[in-house]
Amino acid sequence: MQYQGVLKKMKTENLEQIQYYLDMKTDFLNMNQLLNKEISISFVQYECLNCHLDKTVYRQGFCKSCFFDIPQAADWILKPELSQAHLDIEDRDLAYEKVVQLKPHIVYLANSSNVKVGVTRKGQVPTRWIDQGAHEAIEIVETPNRYLAGITEVALKAHVADKTNWRKMLKNDIEDVDLVVWRERLKAFIPEEAQQYFIENNSETSMNFPVHKYPEKPKSLNLIKTPKYIGKLVGIKGQYLIFDDETVLNIRSNEGLVVSIEV
Results as ranks from 00 to 15, higher is better:
A74P: 00
V234R: 00
L15V: 04
K217P: 00
I41R: 03
I242W: 15
K171S: 06
A155F: 02
F67S: 08
N14M: 10
C63L: 05
Y147K: 09
L102R: 15
L53N: 14
V99Y: 09
S220C: 02
A74K: 08
N36D: 15
Y21R: 05
K79F: 15
T143E: 04
S260T: 03
V180T: 00
K116S: 15
Q196V: 01
N172K: 11
N50G: 05
H212E: 07
K237G: 06
D176N: 10
L87G: 04
L170F: 06
R252G: 00
L102E: 10
E200R: 15
Q72N: 05
R121Y: 14
A110W: 02
I236D: 06
Q4Y: 05
K228V: 03
V211N: 01
S206P: 01
E38K: 11
H86E: 07
A110P: 04
R252W: 13
K25C: 02
T56M: 15
E193Q: 13
N165Y: 07
L53H: 15
W129L: 02
K163M: 08
Y240M: 06
V160W: 12
D54E: 12
V181M: 05
L179D: 01
Y214A: 00
G123R: 14
A74Y: 09
L7Y: 09
G256V: 01
G238K: 12
S40N: 12
E262D: 07
V125Q: 04
D91T: 04
V259R: 10
N32K: 08
L35Q: 10
V119G: 07
E175N: 10
V177S: 05
K168G: 00
I138G: 06
A73E: 09
V100G: 02
V117P: 10
P215S: 02
L156S: 04
W166E: 02
N145V: 03
I236Y: 14
N202W: 00
Q72W: 14
R252E: 00
F43G: 02
K168C: 03
W182K: 12
N208Y: 04
Y58R: 05
Y96R: 04
N165Q: 04
K237S: 12
Q4I: 13
D91K: 03
N36F: 10
F243I: 09
R183N: 08
N165D: 15
G118H: 10
I224D: 14
E192W: 14
Q132I: 02
Q195K: 15
T164D: 06
L7H: 05
T120R: 03
A137M: 08
A74R: 08
L49P: 06
R59D: 05
V160D: 10
P126A: 02
I261V: 10
C63K: 01
H159Q: 09
K232Q: 13
V44W: 03
D75V: 09
A161C: 06
N165S: 08
K171E: 10
S40R: 15
L7D: 05
